[in-house]
Design a protein around this nucleic acid. Sequence first.
DNA 1: CGAATTTGACCCGCGC
DNA 2: GCGCGGGTCAAATTCG
Length: 511
Amino acid sequence: MENNKSENDEMEIDLSLKLDSREEEIEPLNEENQSSELVNAKTQGKDQELSKAETSGSSKTEELSLLQTEMNKMKEENKFLRKAVEQTMKDYYDLQAKFAIIHQNNHDKDHRNFLSLSGNDDTTEGLTRSPKILDIKNRSLSQTSQELDDIMDGDQLGLSLTLVSSNSSITTNKLVESTELEERKEKIKEDNAAITTQIQNKGNLQGGLTSHVTTASPPNRKARVSVRARCESATMNDGCQWRKYGQKIAKGNPCPRAYYRCTVAPGCPVRKQVQRCLEDMSILITTYEGTHNHPLPVGATAMASTTSAAASFMLVDSSINPLLNGNINQAVNFPNYHNNAPNYSHHIPNSSSSSSPYFSNLRNNILNSSDPNILLDLTKNISNDHHHQFPFVSSSSNSSATATANHLSQYSWMPKLPSNNYDGNSNTIVNNLFTGPKLQGDHHHHQNGSSNPILAENMSAIATDPKFRVAVAAAISSLINKDQSHPISTTMPSSLGDHGESNGGSVRHSQ
DNA sequence: CGAATTTGACCCGCGC
DNA sequence: GCGCGGGTCAAATTCG
């Protein structure tokens, strides 16, 4: 009993102290208890308080004190909550503003975004005529597939990602966000039914390159990534399992378009359409749509995640990454490969001076575009036509795969980087990768004396394999899109070998 | 016999 | 409102 009493006494003293300073910031209780003054006060006034409690109506004061304390706590809580609400509202209005901008720009229906993967070395014309080419140079591309790792380990592999958009006049969005703000925004976006995908590259993007895809589009407007690749089989092998659920003859192309859905996991929303190019039957145009809702096989990470990858690639927020404003090359070079990567900034015209609005416009162009289609071209222009330009597609065409195919068939439009901008070895490999057998001989002069002939030979052999091209492109995509909530499974075999289609597969499907 | 593919029908959005 | 075209469904068929 005595113990209890003394505890009560201490409590009373503490509470009274709090009442005195109720308008001030309330310090944690344990701090007060730890103060020596407080301890003295407790001990000195112990007897007095005891007598008070016994004689007068101490229960009322006690009750009052408790209530006051509770009130103080509530005030503090209120303050905190108010701050939170204010911040939330601020974020919400920021988002609304962004969406308004996006919707305003939805009138421009003619944006066509090309994500082209190429090792061409003569893009001078395209580069000079279009300021909207983003070159990403990267060396070793692997980490998504063991095969790619094996192939590229220690090699001087360089790859060029060229992103071209046809729109030339875009407003620049300034999106200034901190990492914390991003997280909060995610919640807000969810609350407001906005679709937000945060794409963060795996380990190799730790350097701060974090891509965000904000699809402020209607639900029926899904981002699509079309992949053009030479492929003799019915479909490209992208490592995923697919089940065919339909086939149609699309207008403008007598070649039937096949519809597949991902069967790796039940309910996976990812679809793909496969159609032969009208003019070159050896070219297969595969259009991916949606994001996988399941862990991806190693070999499938790649192509399967192309949609969001490409989207994220395009929508990298330059304000999140100050590097993007200063030097594209720095921003898009993957830190893991920095040690080996040469400086590719020279691949971008005026990269140091004009890249900021250049890249920002590009991103916003795509962001604001009502046509979220992206084309990833893995078919190097075998015809080696140096005279064609990038087809900055006119507004008359629709965005269907057929139209895309037609456009593709009309142009030899692979980007050609200026040969004098290439520095030796790595780019030779790039060329070999995407040039195909026909050009091997033509570009042998790129292989300077320091290059490894065995390596070059191997790479040439590999480069002639369309599957490998697909895999490399896929690897790029996955590098950009490692993020996701999808842990990468390592249980699946490589995509380079077998076909991913579920022909004869064991996956059970339900429609 | 189970699973995958084929294929005609159906649905839906869009333009006129 | 109607027709067209893209996309999907689901019964029939084929395959292993």
